[in-house]
């Protein structure tokens, strides 16, 4: 029983982590049909910015809990800046091109940004463990968990729900859905698709950066963290169905809980869990569990 509960908690924490690192990718793909490899850079820049701001914050005498603001501020700064620069400065020139060219362009941006990251922050790692230390630990079923990781679950729920409600219940969301459904007709109906695209890209970038910014206190912020996230988030998004936010959530839960179970029961196969689930889903339902229907072009 204890083990089962622990698996569930570990699984939920990891699922939330997966959701947070992949939701930005899903948002951008869902609306713009762009598979954004530079998502990994948003994550990494978010983490570095967060570590820098947190470090700066704790050098002052301000109240300790304010450190959390630094995390969200970091995500906003990075997301808005890179979102606007990349979308307005580059991607908009490529919308009329094949989608794989756009993917490759984001791959190129990723390569460039990896090195820009190093030019700004160097190769030495940054630490920002203060927020994690601040929240302390709690005992559940006689096992110690750190509270910060548990808050990740809450954050994932808030972000997931917020995005989903925003998409289905607000006017903006409905405009988005119209654009998703048919870009040209929406334009003809007077929706400003250009603005919709820019806003979506910025929101996706903020989400990507928020993933990194929130994870930063639990890791060593060092070169190469963005690469891992790309593969991981691709897998989650492929499993859940590309561009679907509930899909990303289900995909993250499926992978997260299976992985936790593997770690506790069969640690040898941990590496395979994500690939195995992906293979299974692909074999049975290759468009992903929650993929939106595709119309054939005639």
């Amino acid at each position: 029983m204890q083990e089962l509960i622990v698996i569930l908690i570990d699984g939920l924490v990891f699922s939330s982590y997966l959701f947070m690192v992949s939701v930005g990718l899903t948002v951008i793909f869902g609306v713009m049909k762009i598979l954004n490899v530079a998502h990994g850079s948003f994550y990494a820049f978010g983490a570095y910015m967060s570590a820098t701001l947190i470090g700066a914050y704790y050098n002052t005498d301000l109240p300790e809990f304010g450190g959390f603001l630094a995390i969200f501020l970091a995500a906003l700064i990075i997301g808005v800046f890179f979102g606007i620069v990349l979308e307005r400065g580059l991607l908009r020139f490529l919308y009329h091109r094949d989608e794989h060219i756009i993917v490759l362009a984001t791959f190129a941006m990723f390569l460039v940004l990896e090195d820009v990251l190093m030019m700004i922050w160097g190769t030495d790692p940054y630490y920002a463990y203060e927020p994690m230390a601040l929240l302390g630990a709690v005992d559940i079923v006689e096992l110690t968990f750190d509270v910060y990781s548990l808050t990740l679950i809450g954050l994932a729920v808030i972000v997931g729900l917020g995005l989903w409600l925003g998409l289905t219940r607000t006017k903006w969301g409905k405009l988005l859905l119209a654009v998703i459904f048919d870009r040209e007709i929406s334009q003809a109906m007077g929706i400003n698709v250009t603005v919709v695209f820019t806003v979506t890209f910025v929101v996706g970038a903020i989400m990507g950066a928020l993933g990194g910014a929130y994870i930063a206190p639990t890791i060593s912020v060092s070169p190469g963290i963005g690469v891992e996230v790309i593969v991981l988030s691709f897998a989650v998004v492929v499993i859940g169905g590309m561009g679907s936010i509930p899909g990303a959530m289900i995909g993250a839960l499926l992978v997260g809980i299976s992985r936790a179970a593997a770690v506790h029961k069969f640690p040898e196969i941990e590496l395979f869990v994500i690939y195995a689930i992906m293979a299974l889903v692909l074999a049975i339902r290759p468009e992903g569990l929650f993929a939106p229907a595709q119309a054939r072009k005639i």
Binding site: A105, A108, E114
Partner: peptide, 12 residues
């Protein structure tokens, strides 16, 4: 990587 990515962007 910067140069590689930059050339790719330029070509695209």
């Amino acid at each position: 990587q910067f140069i590689l990515g930059g050339s790719l962007l330029a070509i695209i």
